[in-house]
């Protein structure tokens, strides 16, 4: 890790702080979106509305900083801020943030750390869904029949891709302002 972050400047550290707090606030608000969505529209509505919001830390940080490991750090630091705020998820947020961050980082790694645009953001957002659904099953015993699980995964990936693309678009606009 030390080698990967060796090229980070003070500005990158501070930008990570900005992403952490913005992502933390979005993650915190997503709890309300998820709980209200789930209570009114059931499991699919809750997930399509909120899950992507929980994945935006990675594309936001990566599109803004454009360095290896930025996606992982953006998602994980956002989850840390969400833990400190705090929410009902408590320390589980950190566990989710860690694995979702790694999965999103994989997206940028697959693209050779050369593409940081909207499509890369969508890919990073979508890739965060599988670990999230897996953790839902392992931690919260949200185990459904195979068809329902597959549908939930698709819904979470679509939500992640949409919000991921949006986060990358916002970061891109801010970067060139």
């Amino acid at each position: 890790m030390r080698g990967l972050v060796a090229g980070y400047t003070g500005v990158d550290y501070a930008l990570l702080g900005v992403v952490a707090v913005v992502a933390g606030i979005v993650f915190y608000s997503a709890w309300y979106v998820y709980d209200i969505g789930k209570a009114i529209g059931g499991i699919y509505a809750g997930r399509i509305l909120a899950y992507g919001l929980w994945f935006i830390g990675a594309p936001l940080a990566a599109s803004l900083i454009r360095r290896p490991l930025a996606a992982f750090l953006g998602e994980f630091l956002g989850a840390l801020v969400e833990t400190v705020i705090p929410t009902v998820g408590g320390f589980t947020n950190m566990i989710y943030g860690f694995f979702q961050g790694l999965a999103s980082e994989l997206g940028y790694a697959l693209l050779g750390y050369r593409k940081w645009g909207i499509l890369a953001g969508a890919l990073a957002g979508a890739l965060a869904a599988p670990p999230c659904i897996a953790l839902d099953a392992v931690l919260f015993a949200e185990i459904y029949p195979a068809v329902v699980t597959a549908l939930l995964l698709v819904v979470a990936m679509v939500s992640g891709a949409v919000y991921g693309a949006l986060a990358a678009l916002v970061a891109d606009k801010l970067r060139w302002q």
């Binding site: 972050v5 702080g17 900005v18």
Partner: peptide, 13 residues
């Protein structure tokens, strides 16, 4: 430092 500084800065923000 890569975790503690952004976290401290973010919370200060």
């Amino acid at each position: 430092k890569i975790i503690s500084f952004p976290l401290a800065y973010g919370l200060r923000l």
